[in-house]
């Protein structure tokens, strides 16, 4: 009971701290913008720990953060193998193939108006569908190993990337196109010097959306069959064995991988589209 009380106190303390920060003179500084979510996160973890211990919540329902941390530290080799299988082999290769082919397709779609008229509504339609559902089919075709996961990822990222890139390639204004016209520029000159750079914010938007989709695809596809490794495999078997600390450890890996992947793409975006108002602010 004392621990539960402690949790309540911790919550009040964390909230008080953030209120002070938010109404303080430094409220808009970088430091506060960084500290406040950190304090909030740590408070949540602290409360979680205290509640689980205070109320003796069984491991099969919710393991305490410390238990998860211990399991994480103790299973690094397994987690690493799973990470390589699911993220590097499955998600990353599918991401690269999917985004690249969607990019090429977008150029074709942009070039031929008929393709744009026909393919774009289909692409928009498919982009909203539950594509992870193709996983059982692709697992059947490409086997249990990472190739089928990469295939699922390709299908998942293709259409969002296509739709975004096509929108981006149409982003150059009429005036900018007219300017290229007055220079009697060829199609590829105007493509390389105008439309491609102008499309970059949209291309990166597609790339960023696709990072998360790639991880979702690679992990969920493993629920439909996989060799005896991989994050999705580990999650589903550990759930079956009720070792929830392992499940949480894998989720931590997934969270870190997702954030890092997204962050990396966002960093490249910042370097490439430094000129865009959204990056200058």
């Amino acid at each position: 009971m004392i621990l539960v009380l402690g949790a309540v106190l911790l919550w009040l303390f964390g909230w008080w701290l953030n209120s002070r920060l938010a109404s303080g003179p430094q409220a808009n500084s970088r430091l506060v913008r960084f500290l406040a979510p950190l304090i909030f996160g740590l408070t949540i973890i602290g409360i979680w720990e205290l509640f689980v211990r205070g109320l003796n919540v069984p491991l099969v329902i919710l393991p305490a953060p410390s238990v998860i941390a211990v399991r994480f530290a103790g299973s690094l080799p397994i987690l690493w193998v799973d990470f390589v299988q699911t993220i590097i082999k499955g998600a990353l290769s599918g991401y690269i193939i999917g985004c690249f082919s969607a990019f090429l397709m977008a150029i074709a779609v942009d070039r031929w108006d008929f393709l744009r008229l026909g393919l774009l509504p289909v692409g928009n339609f498919v982009a909203a569908l539950p594509i992870v559902g193709t996983a059982p089919i692709l697992v059947m075709w490409f086997g249990f190993d990472w190739h089928s996961k990469a295939a699922v990822v390709v299908v998942m990222v293709f259409f969002p990337m296509l739709v975004n890139t096509v929108a981006g390639l149409r982003e150059a204004t009429v005036m900018q196109r007219d300017l290229m016209e007055t220079y009697a520029a060829t199609y590829w000159q105007s493509f390389l010097k105008l439309r491609l750079p102008a499309a970059m914010p949209f291309v990166f938007n597609g790339l960023k959306i696709s990072t998360t989709l790639a991880l979702i695809g690679a992990i969920v596809a493993e629920f439909f069959g996989s060799p005896t490794l991989g994050m999705g495999f580990r999650i589903s078997t550990s759930v079956g064995q009720l070792s929830l600390d392992m499940v949480w450890a894998e989720i931590v890996v997934a969270a870190l991988a997702g954030t890092a992947f997204y962050g990396l793409v966002a960093m490249i975006e910042k370097a490439v589209t430094f000129w865009h108002p959204s990056q200058r602010g």
Partner: peptide, 24 residues
């Protein structure tokens, strides 16, 4: 306060395959 504390996590959550929590 909520903006400072919660919003960054809501944004980060968009980059995480939280669907992995489903079986659990």
């Amino acid at each position: 306060v909520m903006d400072l504390s919660v919003m960054p996590w809501a944004i980060v959550s968009q980059t995480i395959p939280i669907i992995a929590l489903a079986p659990m």
